[in-house]
Structures are given as structure tokens and as C-alpha cells.
């Protein structure tokens, strides 16, 4: 009886929220307030700031000019809202430290590859994974390098990189994965995301501007639309975030698979 009542309550909640949601303007309507607006070719910035949705318009207009990145989203998260992403990389680094400080168990030495939960004994799976992992790594690097040209970036490419190592260690045993990507190496690469970000931000201070003033770095052509190396600082940040996130994902996986109950470890 009580369960039926609770279920009814959830149903009423669902109906009420659907009724509320139907009052919103339709999805994709150009007349909604959150729409980033018509993009005329030559409109001065003063005219843009008069509109109600000025921030989105400003990001879309200034992505090439201010940051050298054709992708407005990458320009926004790495340059305009640089502090946000800097602490975001710090947060994922801290989450890894917290997870690994909770998982203190050790995988025993005598647990060899025969007892692994994976499917090493199936030849087809092992062969296919051995063939497919290099392409996964290459695709992850592609997404990282093209982060400031097209949708994608450090976090997405880093997760693909980490997933390739996780897949290898999952199919073959943990020891095999440890041979390919040792946790000593991961321990160094882990902090690359926040470190690279802060380093690129410090260049702004050295050259006489503010922290994270990315557009002052003009060692290579800056702001050419559609080319790969159109923005050096954003590329450096993407590389740092990508390798950092990939190693963090792999390291968290290593922490889980080596976890054993405390009373069995000697």
C-alpha cells in the first residue's frame, strides 16, 4: 500500500513537471532568449552588448579574433572561462587522489594471469583487441589535436586514450597492462593537466599581461581559420589535459583492479 502511494506520488510529480515543461518555448526556436543570435558579418561590439543574449553572441563573434580557435565552445572553456577549466582539471586530479587513497588493498603476487576475469583464453578476442588498440590511441590523439578546430578536445580525447589502455588491461591481465603502461609513468603524467594549464597561464604574467592571457603568445601564426596550429596556447592546454585525463582514468582503473580485502593481504 505504501509503495503504491509512493509510486503514485512519483507519477503525479512526472505529470506536473511535463505540464510545466510544455510551457517552455519549442526546442531550436530562434526567438528564445537563450538563442545565440543572428551573426551579421560586420557588427561592432557595442551593438552586440546591447542585446539580451550578449555573452553568447560575444563568444561566437570573438572566438577566432581573440582566441584563434574556430570552435566557439573550445574558445569559451579554455580562454574566456579559463579559471573554470583550470579548477576542473584540478578537481579530476583530486578525485583520483581521493579514490586511490581509499583503495589501499594490494593484488597478491600469486594471482597470475590464469585467474583473471578477462577473456585471455579466447584467441579471437585477444587478436582483435591487439589490432584495435593502436587505432583507438590514434583516434584519441586525433581528437586531442583537433580540439580547437572542431568539436572535441582534451577531456574527450583523454577519455578515449584512457579507455584504450583500460580495454587492453581488461582483456589481458592487469600485469600485461602494467607492462605496457606502468603505473610509475602514470604517476608522473597524472598531474600534467593542471600543471600545463598553470604553466601556459604563467606565460601571460611573464610577458606583462594578466594570468591566463592566452592571446599574447604569438610565436606561430595566430587565428587562421581552419588550420590545425591556429592557436598554440590552446593546443598546449589541450595536450596537457588530454594526457592527464587519460592517465587519470587508467590509474583509477588500476586502483580498482588491484583492490583486495584487507584481511587477505599479507
Amino acid at each position: 500500500m505504501r509503495k503504491i502511494l509512493m509510486f503514485l506520488m512519483f507519477f503525479i510529480f512526472l505529470l506536473l513537471t511535463i505540464v510545466v515543461v510544455l510551457q517552455l518555448p519549442p526546442v531550436g526556436d530562434p526567438h528564445v532568449p537563450s538563442y545565440a543570435g543572428y551573426l551579421p558579418p560586420d557588427v561592432p561590439v557595442e551593438e552586440i552588448t546591447k542585446q539580451s543574449n550578449a555573452v553568447g553572441l560575444y563568444y561566437n563573434r570573438g572566438a577566432i579574433k581573440n582566441c584563434g580557435s574556430p570552435s566557439a565552445i573550445t574558445a569559451m572553456i579554455l580562454d574566456y572561462r579559463g579559471y573554470d577549466t583550470l579548477y576542473e582539471t584540478t578537481v579530476i586530479f583530486l578525485a583520483m587522489i581521493a579514490a586511490l587513497s581509499v583503495l589501499v588493498g594490494k593484488r597478491k603476487k600469486e594471482e597470475d594471469t590464469e585467474t583473471w576475469i578477462g577473456v585471455t583464453r579466447y584467441t579471437i578476442v585477444g587478436t582483435v583487441i591487439k589490432k584495435i588498440v593502436p587505432f583507438m590511441v590514434m583516434y584519441g590523439l586525433y581528437v586531442i589535436f583537433h580540439g580547437e578546430v572542431s568539436p572535441g578536445g582534451g577531456f574527450q580525447g583523454g577519455v578515449i586514450l584512457g579507455a584504450s589502455f583500460v580495454l587492453y588491461a581488461l582483456i589481458f591481465s592487469y600485469e600485461e597492462g602494467e607492462k605496457k603502461m606502468p603505473s610509475d609513468t602514470l604517476r608522473i603524467v597524472n598531474a600534467l593537466g593542471p600543471f600545463m594549464y598553470a604553466l601556459v597561464g604563467l606565460i601571460g604574467i611573464v610577458t606583462g599581461y594578466t594570468f591566463l592571457a592566452n592571446k599574447v603568445i604569438k610565436t606561430i601564426p595566430h587565428g587562421i581559420e581552419g588550420t590545425l596550429f591556429s592557436s598554440l596556447p590552446l593546443l598546449l592546454i589541450e595536450l596537457g589535459i588530454g594526457f592527464g585525463v587519460g592517465s587519470i582514468i587508467t590509474h583509477i582503473f588500476y586502483g580498482y583492479v588491484t583492490e583486495r580485502p584487507l584481511d587477505t593481504q599479507k
Binding site: A63, S71, P151, E225, G226
Partner: peptide, 19 residues
């Protein structure tokens, strides 16, 4: 869904965009 626009572009350089 709030920020989406029907047939709206994602990047400013559509020629190189995979979308």
C-alpha cells in the same frame, strides 16, 4: 536543448567541420 537552435552551426569554420 536550451542552447540549441534548429540548423544552427557549431563552429565558425563550417568548411572543416565534420558535422
Amino acid at each position: 536543448a536550451l542552447g540549441d537552435v534548429r540548423l544552427g552551426k557549431i563552429t565558425t569554420s563550417w568548411a572543416k567541420s565534420p558535422y
